[in-house]
Design a binder for these strands. Structure first.
Lengths: 372, 372
DNA sequence: TTGTAAGCGTTATCAT
DNA sequence: ATGATAACGCTTACAA
């Protein structure tokens, strides 16, 4: 296979060093354009924004000149002048390598895609920020919002009594939340800033009811700690379904865990070694469910009728697993879009009539859950 | 389950509208600090950066005051002044919802995690930018780099004769590439800007040789178009292995496709309907391999000895598939870190001695490939 | 040790 | 229709 022709500039790697002094040069300013055009800076500024007070002819002349010189207005200068940056930040825990997830969280990309897409259509830049934990947690928001790296921020991984909320409200930092608790919905609707959330509790309840409907009675719920709304709510939905069906709640069947595939794998290995193992497992996320199914298969347990598995999230992956995974699909892309819309509305000064969006997940039944 | 106590400020959603005027207020400037401290702006500026010329006492006093007033220097002002933004941008195609991938690319998160982590440790912000296609492709770089939204940019999805390179070089826009061709490595080493790449060709060759070593003779290679280096190189590696083993190259067995699980699924369905189907499949990515394995299982073909499948990427997912997927692991996180290190070095004005990093992927043998 | 003033590149408010 | 000027918030010679 022939090499692609040498089309790029060819220089020794060392020559980069020689180019360095020029790196920051040669970007024309508005003053430069003005000088060359023989007009004032303000005329150029007007011409470039198609101000009708500038006659068509000069306008065109200046625009051509600017294009020819490859002029692009300096963002920092503009931001400084306008007192806004047209940038929103997404703060996410999933970017931390040491967060224990073991590997990438597919959820984040889906969300990011929605966010990036919508932000672009609003002419906003997107800043990606790692969430910090503990002492330095609030410092992140102070830096980004106080220092005006961004005009507003999207928060994820909300917790009960999340002290970030009080902090952001106190400082009037524009923000939008992904994740409120279904537990306090009435209260959450009073929150002054927008949020969007998927009904984790109902989702988990519906999923559990699905298992119960299939005849399962010993249903384990695995995954999640006690930290975030989404994990608490999903667990609550599980218990709610049991209660409604007058099934006893067995704490031994409700097992906390990490969020990686491996966690699901190890826990399921244990479960299956019980003398009376559960006949169905509700995994708190699709990622976890992957590990659960693998463990079952490795133990020679066929996933389906005798041992049903359901996940949560609706990752594209699910339908290609063996067997295909029943799950509760979240409209992740859409959540991303909505979050951006809500935040932009706030920044624009025109908050939406209903700033609180509560979406329903959708039960997708596949072969991993079958009648017992 | 009790609701989390009402800890957040409680206001009607409509009150947000009333708060709006205050949104952009109340962020103190350096002038404000100076006024309150009874000193000049420049003194404050110095005190805040621990300039030793300011006596310890005043320094402390000013720092306390700033902290108390929640002062954070305005990034735009600082950037304007310094003529740099301490921001790098990642331009990615994977953020486009309409890109045909169908869903999230897990690869991107892994890369992002590495990038975000390393960038943070260099005190750089990370801007996330969707790649455009066609006419508007270069406009993205003009806007980001010319407009100084970022100091430098990370390019992905490189193509042969990628005209972005000439463009960036011509304008002296600092950048680093993820993806050069193994086909023109000598030439690529002359490129003035840094790049990092994983040896896709060798990886694919080693993977194919693995299959050949297992006794497979009819080996299909599916996936990828003719656009990007990574897909061309992997295909080249496949052919190289065949050639070395004196196996004939059958064009019918080298099948282009999209990059989604579904593409892998549909193609494999077709393959299996042939009168003499291949006994092994090299899927150009792990994501594609997921679809391949699903199709095999659905067709009643057991993946393993009689029908081996190998992927490429080494996503965490692979070891939990059924059967676990043999693959070539790319050090994705590390690539992200390296890209940032290289770019920061350029921006710092101290380019590394060896700006071109070529990493080897690692063959990870699992149960999806077995002797034929 | 600290203050003064110029400058970063825009935009906006005056005038003219 | 266009020019002059101030302002955005910060840094940094240069003075004092």
């Amino acid at each position: 296979m022939a090499s692609a022709g040498p089309n790029e500039p060819q220089q020794s790697g060392e020559q980069l060093r020689q180019m360095l002094p020029e790196l920051n040069s040669a970007r024309p300013t508005i003053a430069e354009i003005a000088r060359r055009a023989g007009v004032n800076k303000s005329t150029v500024s007007r011409a470039l924004r198609d101000d009708p007070s500038i006659p068509q002819a000069t306008r065109q002349r200046i625009q051509d000149l600017a294009a020819q010189l490859n002029y692009v207005p300096n963002a920092s200068a503009r931001h400084l002048n306008h007192a806004r940056t047209d940038t929103i930040a997404l703060v996410s825990r999933a970017l931390n390598l040491d967060t224990g997830a073991g590997s990438a969280d597919p959820f984040l990309v889906e969300l990011l895609a929605g966010i990036a897409d919508e932000a672009a259509s609003h002419h906003f830049d997107v800043l990606l920020v790692r969430a910090e934990e503990g002492e330095r947690e609030l410092g992140v928001y102070q830096r980004i919002l106080g220092g005006r790296h961004a005009d507003g921020v999207i928060l994820t991984d909300l917790r009960p009594n999340d002290h970030r909320l009080a902090y952001l409200c106190r400082h009037r930092y524009p923000h939008v939340l992904f994740g409120r608790s279904a537990e306090d919905l009435a209260e959450a609707r009073l929150y002054p800033y927008p949020w969007a959330e998927v009904d984790n509790r109902s989702g988990a309840r519906i999923g559990t009811e699905h298992l119960i409907g299939l005849g399962h009675r010993r249903i384990a719920f695995i995954g999640g700690g006690d930290t975030y709304h989404w994990e608490r709510d999903r667990r609550a939905g599980y218990r709610e379904a049991l209660a409604r069906a007058n099934l006893p709640y067995d704490p031994r069947l409700c097992i906390p865990s990490g969020i990686s595939q491996k966690d699901g794998y190890l826990l399921t290995q244990q479960l299956l070694s019980w003398e009376e193992p559960p006949t169905a497992i509700f995994a708190i996320s699709d990622v976890l469910a992957v590990g659960v199914m693998r463990a079952a298969l490795d133990a020679g347990v066929q996933v389906g009728p005798a041992f049903s598995v359901i996940g949560f999230d609706g990752l594209g992956l699910g339908s290609y697993l063996t067997p295909p995974l029943t799950t509760l699909r979240q409209p992740i892309n859409e959540v991303g879009r909505i979050l951006v819309q809500l935040l932009c509305a706030v920044l624009r000064g025109t908050p939406p009539e209903e700033p609180h969006v509560f979406l329903q997940p959708e039960l997708i039944v596949r072969a991993s859950t079958r009648g017992y």
